[in-house]
Nucleic acid binder design. Structure first.
Length: 260
DNA sequence: ATTGTGGCCTGCCCGC
DNA sequence: TGCGGGCAGGCCACAA
């Protein structure tokens, strides 16, 4: 699914349309427009302008227009960005690799047939105008130790739930949370506030390293734990049978032996 | 405020 | 072979 690494790939791809004049907007799916906006409003807000920056905060892609509104794109679990007909990510786990026109939920067109399209079979993503960026916490990729401490401090919620809370840390999804906690040797169910200082430091370091690795390897599904995230799966580190639980409302795989 | 739960979206996979 | 149920998870609304 698109977590931070996928959306970062989308962001880089979107940079190729910066500076082009927006000639049209196609928003055939009203459900996909969020925050009470409609197709006419998006059209009026964008046509005639140009994007001049492609930013990312967590899992949201932000396209700023020059002296105008910002377009926010969320991809949910199954959304792809398709720029000039080329998908930004080859393989998307839990989505479909097929290409059906009716899955194009939102499109921006530029001269000479160029385009930026959100293709999302399951319609879990959405399009925003001037999204409230303050609702997202600091980006996971540039998270400092102090920010991680602040995000976890004093909380009785499960560690994993806190990591995935986009208002506190933006960009960590289910697969990356499992991978990072597995690498860090921390039990996802532990109260977030129960980490010692050494454990918090370790988690900050491992989370950063995990994101770097997944960015380099091309996606959130390329983690080392991923191969074992299946019934009967064993820990790639020590061979113990993995445990499958629901934590923070999400399917969670962890190793009972080395994750404490 | 904090934490947990249920529902939404729909393609896909498994078992009958 | 077709069909139906369950599953996937990001996000939001809502409840306690």
């Amino acid at each position: 699914m698109p977590e931070l690494p996928e959306v970062e790939a989308y962001r880089r791809q979107a940079e190729s349309v910066l500076g082009l004049s927006i000639t049209g907007v196609d928003a055939p799916d009203a459900w996909y427009l969020k925050g009470g906006i409609d197709a006419a409003e998006v059209d009026a807000a964008l046509v005639g302008r140009r994007f001049d920056a492609a930013r990312r905060r967590g899992k949201m892609l932000l396209l700023d227009t020059r002296r105008g509104p910002t377009l926010g794109l969320r991809f949910g679990m199954t959304g792809r960005l398709v720029v000039d007909g080329v998908p930004g990510v080859d393989r998307l786990i839990y989505s479909s690799d097929r290409d059906r026109p009716e899955w194009n939920r939102f499109a921006v067109s530029f001269p000479v047939g160029r385009s930026l399209v959100v293709r999302d079979p399951r319609r879990l993503g959405g399009v925003y105008l001037d999204p409230d960026e303050a609702r997202l916490g600091p980006d996971a990729l540039s998270l400092t130790l102090a920010q991680l401490r602040h995000a976890l401090a004093g909380s009785e919620a499960p560690l994993k739930a806190r990591l995935m809370d986009q208002a506190r840390i933006a960009g960590v999804g289910n697969l990356i949370a499992d991978e990072a906690l597995w690498r860090a040797g921390l039990d996802p169910a532990r109260p977030a506030g129960s980490l010692t200082d050494a454990e918090t430091r370790r988690l900050a370091r491992v989370l950063r390293r995990t994101l770097d690795d997944l960015l380099a390897d091309g996606g959130s599904h390329t983690g080392d734990l991923m191969v074992a995230r299946t019934p009967g799966g064993r820990c790639p580190k020590d061979g113990a049978p993995l445990v499958r639980r629901t934590i923070g409302g999400r399917t969670t795989w962890s190793c009972p032996r080395h994750q404490r």
